[in-house]
Amino acid sequence: MPGDDDIESREGTVKRNSYNNDDDNNNNRSSVYASSSTYVIVDTDSQWTSWLVPMVVVANVSVFVVVMYVNNCSDHRHTRLAGNCVATFLGRFSFEPLRENPLFGPSSSTLNKLGALEWTKVVINHQGWRLITCIWLHAGIIHLLVNMLSLVFIGIRLEQQFGFVRVGIIYLLSGFGASVLSSLFNRNNISVGASGALFGLLGAMLSELITNWSIYTNKAAALFSLLIIIAINLAIGILPHVDNFAHIGGLITGFLLGFVLLCRPQFGSLERENLPAGTPFKSNYKPYQYALWLVSVVLLVVGLTVASVMLFRGENGNDHCRWCRYLTCVSTSRWDCNEN
């Protein structure tokens, strides 16, 4: 369980359209955002300085630059005319033709070469490292931009309240859980992006709200708003070319990690300071918090272990869950999921 932190407050708005995030500026500690998705907690003056999230953003941008350098669209003369590349004035950093990549980015072959998630390479070729490297790759500059904006608006707030260690663990493990579930159900396409890790942060926000319920103001509004945000983003995930299994895997992993890593004591340090000297201070975690912590640890260990074993044994998740394919794509008159 975490140490006895002072009760802190985080007031924020988190909205994501596929990965988009809208945030208002911080007001004073008792203010409430005039938004439908208000996330309000009690406040304290002490906060960690956020440096991990900015470093992750810089790392993702740097990796994208390297990917574009390696891609070198303007040099693909054996497969296409250089003039077909987008923004040719960028030289070897120019983007692939929009008919191949509408997100202004590299080719799928370049992403695959540099660590994209692909079932064949992970399972058959034993390249398990792709479960992590895919988190740092993005399909295009639009994909990168919306993911990094989401990370800034969600991650900085969490890091300020809980520190870089806990947020970093949630981010990486959620990304790993997203990759494992995606690989179990998605064998036909490659997958890249930090969206699974970002859904993990959203899931952690939800479980943190639940386990620290008594220190929140506007509890019902905060819970309802967060559930609506998650539901909307999962609904967007049924569109073609969106890997909703990664979103779901990251969300579940982050949700469980939130109970483990983001649990707060229910009383602040000011109450300890007011106790007479020498008075023993009883732990102020509630029994339900210990129970949620224990159950979440067990589910995390068992879930990730079983899913990983199934994956590397070459099992197909769709064989165990016939209807699960509808979680990531629903065929309509406008598109056929079998073609994506």
Rank of each mutant, 00 (worst) to 15 (best):
S182C: 11
A194V: 13
G193V: 01
A221K: 15
F245D: 07
L184S: 01
G254D: 00
L239S: 08
I248T: 07
F199D: 09
A235H: 04
N233I: 08
S174F: 02
G200I: 09
L227C: 14
L226Q: 09
N186P: 01
V180Y: 09
L184W: 03
M205A: 07
G254M: 00
L172F: 14
F176R: 07
L184C: 02
G168V: 06
G268I: 00
S191Y: 04
A246E: 07
I228Q: 12
A246N: 08
N188D: 15
A221H: 14
S182I: 00
C263P: 06
F185D: 11
A194L: 15
L226C: 02
F255S: 10
R187Q: 15
L239Y: 05
L257H: 05
R187L: 13
R166K: 15
N274L: 13
I232W: 10
K219Y: 12
L181K: 05
V260G: 07
N212F: 04
G196R: 03
S195P: 05
E208A: 15
I230N: 09
L209C: 08
W213C: 13
S191C: 12
N212R: 05
I252F: 10
N244W: 02
C263W: 03
P276H: 00
L209I: 02
F176S: 05
F259T: 05
G177A: 06
P280F: 12
R166T: 10
A204T: 08
L261T: 03
N244A: 06
L173E: 06
F281S: 15
A231N: 05
L270C: 11
V192A: 07
H241D: 14
I252S: 02
P240H: 07
G249S: 01
I215V: 15
F281V: 15
S174E: 04
R187D: 14
A221S: 15
I248M: 03
F224S: 14
S182H: 00
L184V: 04
I170L: 02
G237K: 03
L251Y: 11
A221D: 14
G175F: 04
N188I: 11
L181R: 06
L209V: 00
L270N: 13
R264M: 14
G200M: 03
R272Y: 11
G250R: 01
G254T: 01
A235P: 01
G237W: 01
G278V: 11
P276M: 01
L172Y: 06
F281I: 15
I248W: 02
L172H: 05
L251A: 10
Q266F: 01
L270Y: 12
I169C: 12
Q266A: 14
I252E: 02
L262A: 11
F185E: 09
L206N: 05
P276L: 00
N284G: 04
M205V: 12
Q266M: 14
K282N: 15
L227P: 04
W213T: 09
G203Q: 03
